[in-house]
Write a protein that binds this DNA or RNA. Structure first.
Lengths: 343, 343
DNA sequence: TATTTTTACGAAACCGTTTTCGTGTTGATA
DNA sequence: TATCAACACGAAAACGGTTTCGTAAAAATA
């Protein structure tokens, strides 16, 4: 087992001082060509690599960024992580992925754990639990300590920091508008409970589109379900009870589930009823019929978040960039598939 | 902006030495009750938290584990990551997730980057590129340096380390056996190119089941596709050309794709043709018809991998545990759904 | 030759902890 | 009263680097 070699080892072997070795390896002008050659050759031969921890301690910078997401077995979040990872890697940063599991306590614990030196900054999407409690003190502490924080997707106005989100309202608006233009009149919304910020925005877009086209928003055409577990009976009842010719679902799973139900009721998609979902994941692409969705471009969200974070991390603390917070709002794209094809 | 407080700060304020502060905060018996109370109170009040980096440097242990996966927008790998994260967190470890993107160079680069102090060990699933090149020198170097390494799913015999995998061969065997028992005779296999280790094992299971039931393995019933991108024409041709009443696909996507094709050929699933896939992801649960799959239990794989890694990390270097390598082979489960229901 | 300037390197501080080893006081023992 | 533990604390080394500053020797100048 080869032990790692340190500056001290090289210094001892070559009978020079540690500082000389350090400088030689950085190609400092202070050191003579001869000495540098000797040291560099020795280092190469013994495969010397500086210890990252020591460097981090010295620079007070780890080149790690902490990413905290509510869940990972989820297409949207994985695309975001992928985007973050891509940008971070290109800038020489590592990504520490932590999962809050939608739990406030876990979110707090993760931050507690990482905040003391483990990472240079955080990228976070709020746990549903946190959004429900509206307690953001842990995040405020992070920013107060001068540690950069970027929120994405599930964000809050309570915390002053950079944010990246899609235009959820517009996404829903354009989706419903498309349905109306296709001649749909009785458009339902299947959404999650209110405290999830994005669901609310999407509902606003839904309402706005209806209102602009002089269609009354009927509360009984809006089905609210708990986000954690799908209530099949509720969906079943909903479709049996209401007269609906199009549905906007705030996520893919709700849409797929709903499509299966209406298919069992012998309704044809899209002839009798059209569907649009959010999150352009695998399910939408491969469902039968394929599902029209509002694509959120998670990869771009991730890249933007990473870019904003690293900018802050690398800015001098009293730089102007350190003191201004931006919110980037990315556009969605409506991807039309079979579930909305008009005859 | 509150600056972080260090031992030195406390020592200065309270006019004691740094060592006294350190000991007091660890409740050392060496320090008098009075002094400890004073120091602990002060620390609490100023929210002192030790600097992780400094501790890492001192202990030569980071409590970080590096996870390198070929891709992240993929159900199986995310379930594994989830399992790793769950176990690691419970043991006080952080998870650094890196994505090799199926690239050998990226895999090597990630290891290079993390190997010098950033992590205590690695959990890795081989990039397809690496499996193609059969070059494992970067992994051998890791183990030679005494850094624990656990391979999962896409593993190799070339590297001496702990491994976790499912019984791919058995999974495929049982799946095909089930098809035969259901009366299927013309069973096809849709797989990826040979260099992916798991695909090979699955093919072996497929062949074994056929042979045991005296069914000839016909090469023209085996379709090999590049794993990166799905060749629709090849699938199309395959189904038009061959007479098939059941298909085993080595992953979910191939299965879903294939089902769509045969449905377009007006074949009924499962009446005319049955399907079984691997990876029990969202697609299988929500496809139409729902897909029978060989579940790989990624979460358990992840937990096992993390457990093995952390055992090694925490063992003394010349412990007996440090020198024995185990390969854990987890059982698969056949989850039967509509795509194989027998009238 | 005496003085100044380079050149080439080493000593030491520092990042924030932990930990070993003293050491000055105090109280107990002989 | 002299001796010895026990007690409570501090100095310093160590983890592995970077960086500032000081300085001896060589080279350049006067």
């Amino acid at each position: 087992m080869k032990k790692k070699i340190t500056l001290k080892d090289i210094a001892r072997e070559l009978e020079v001082s540690i500082s000389t070795v350090s400088k030689a390896l950085k190609n400092s002008e202070e050191i003579s060509r001869d000495t540098k050659d000797k040291i560099q050759a020795f280092a190469k031969q013994h495969n010397y690599k500086p210890n990252n921890i020591a460097i981090s301690l010295k620079n007070r910078r780890t080149h790690n960024i902490g990413v905290i997401i509510p869940k990972i077995v989820h297409h949207f979040f994985t695309t975001v992580v992928k985007g973050i990872e891509r940008y971070a890697t290109s800038k020489g940063y590592n990504v520490l992925v932590c999962i809050s599991n939608e739990s406030f306590e876990k979110e707090v614990a993760i931050i507690e754990l990482l905040v003391n030196g483990s990472v240079d900054g955080f990228i976070l999407s709020l746990a549903s639990d946190t959004q429900k409690r509206k307690d953001y003190s842990h995040l405020k502490e992070v920013t107060e300590q001068g540690i950069p924080l970027v929120l994405f997707d599930r964000i809050t106005d309570e915390v002053k920091c950079d944010k990246v989100t899609i235009n959820d309202k517009e996404g829903a608006y354009l989706a419903v508008k498309k349905l109306i233009e296709n001649g749909r009149k009785k458009i339902a919304l299947i959404t999650t409970e209110d405290y999830i910020s994005v669901s609310n925005s999407r509902k606003e877009g839904y309402c706005q589109a209806l209102e602009e086209h002089n269609i009354l928003v009927k509360e009984n055409l809006i089905l609210r379900l708990p986000s954690m577990k799908i209530d099949e009976d509720a969906i079943n009842d909903f479709f049996k009870r209401e007269d609906i010719d199009a549905v906007l679902c705030v996520n893919e799973i709700l849409a797929i589930y709903s499509m299966r139900f209406v298919q069992k009721l012998s309704l044809r998609i899209p002839e009798d009823i059209a569907f649009i979902g959010f999150t352009d994941g695998m399910l939408s692409k491969f469902s039968n019929p394929t599902l029209t969705t509002v694509a959120q471009h998670g990869g771009m969200i991730g890249e933007a978040a990473a870019r904003l974070l690293i900018e802050k991390v690398e800015s001098d603390d009293d730089d102007e960039v350190a003191e201004t917070y931006t919110t980037e709002i990315l556009k969605t794209t409506l991807i039309e598939r079979e579930s909305t094809w008009n005859n």
